[in-house]
């Protein structure tokens, strides 16, 4: 965006620009307009982010139990409790594991799917429209459906795998930690691969034909063509898909809560579920607040990295 298309001020008649006091006035008006238009949105966002953070900080230093007796200042005790709790570290690891595995699978499979959908077939439009449906399904619904389908006793997956002779014993998806992780990640991959594919497909459709044709005339193989011409042009879209998915993956609650509830034990418990358990089942608001603040700090670092990825690979952050 060049400065010529920016609003330097409103209703500036020709010839009035340029003199020093006048410019000051114009700038002040632009500033008032800018902040005035932003104010309602900023208030809403402050109410939902900064205000809760202030509450968290306040509670994090207090003994605060919604059921138990009186609240009082306890210093760093809550932080000490949270940071020395092995469950918390395990859950943080689980969170990172969940995000890294799901998002890389979604990007990889999404790219494959996008490449398939980029081929011109008579049914491409219909198939694409159907493929993207999972991204609109409420996570609660998809998690409930997966839970029912994967149930070892009456689920269809174990039944058909057994009757087709692929497995002898039903897989205990919710009793075995490894299989529980498979279920959690399968659900996320099912739900969000289409989202990645959709973004990457938009990128593929924007790849101009000329360089491809030129390379093909030079005898470049399909793989080289993809690696040297398509992939670089796709970079901004990969960055956008990665960032949007990573953000949402860190916020995932409903699907894991409904599918495994963090179980068996706490093997699939991510920080978001931990927070829910501590705050709304144990009612230990102090510990939950301390944990919330620690998580926010981790996420702030992650978000900065993700913004860097966006900044390096796309121009959408440019002013």
């Amino acid at each position: 965006m060049t400065s010529a298309t920016e609003f330097k001020g409103m209703a500036v008649a020709p010839g009035q620009q340029g003199t020093f006091p006048r410019r000051q006035g114009v700038q002040a008006r632009a500033r008032r307009l800018g902040w005035g238009l932003l104010a309602p949105a900023l208030i809403l966002l402050l109410v939902m982010t900064v205000l809760p953070t202030i509450y968290l900080v306040y509670f994090a230093f207090r003994h605060e139990n919604l059921l138990g007796s009186g609240s009082h200042f306890v210093g760093f005790l809550n932080f000490q409790r949270v940071l020395t709790d092995p469950t918390v570290w395990w859950d943080l690891l689980s969170t990172l594991q969940f995000v890294v595995i799901s998002v890389s699978l979604e990007l990889g499979l999404g790219l494959l799917l996008a490449l398939m959908l980029n081929k011109r077939l008579p049914e491409t439009n219909l198939v694409t429209a159907l493929f993207i449906l999972p991204l609109g399904v409420a996570p609660v619904v998809s998690a409930l459906v997966f839970r029912v389908l994967l149930d070892p006793a009456y689920g269809w997956v174990d039944f058909y795998l057994q009757s087709w002779g692929i497995i002898d014993q039903p897989i205990d998806f919710f009793g075995d930690p490894v299989w529980a992780w498979v279920a959690v990640i399968a659900l996320d991959v099912w739900q969000w691969t289409p989202f990645c594919a959709l973004i990457l497909l938009a990128g593929l459709q924007g790849v101009p034909a000329e360089p491809k044709e030129a390379a093909m005339l030079d005898g470049a193989s399909n793989l080289r063509l993809f690696w040297h011409i398509v992939l670089p042009l796709l970079r901004p879209f990969l960055a956008i898909a990665l960032v949007l998915r990573a953000i949402e993956a860190f916020k995932t609650f409903a699907s894991i809560f409904v599918l495994t509830g963090g179980g068996p034990g706490n093997s699939t418990e991510v920080i978001n579920l931990d927070l829910y358990r501590v705050a709304l089942q144990d009612f230990d608001i102090g510990a939950a607040s301390a944990l919330g603040i620690c998580f926010l700090l981790v996420l702030a670092v992650v978000m900065q990295q993700l913004l860097n990825v966006l900044g390096r690979n796309t121009d959408i952050l440019e002013d």
Binding site: P52, A279, L299, L307
Partner: peptide, 13 residues
Amino acid sequence: STIMFPPAVSVVP
């Protein structure tokens, strides 16, 4: 950046 604020954190306050 506020997009990163997890609902599971803000739900308690």
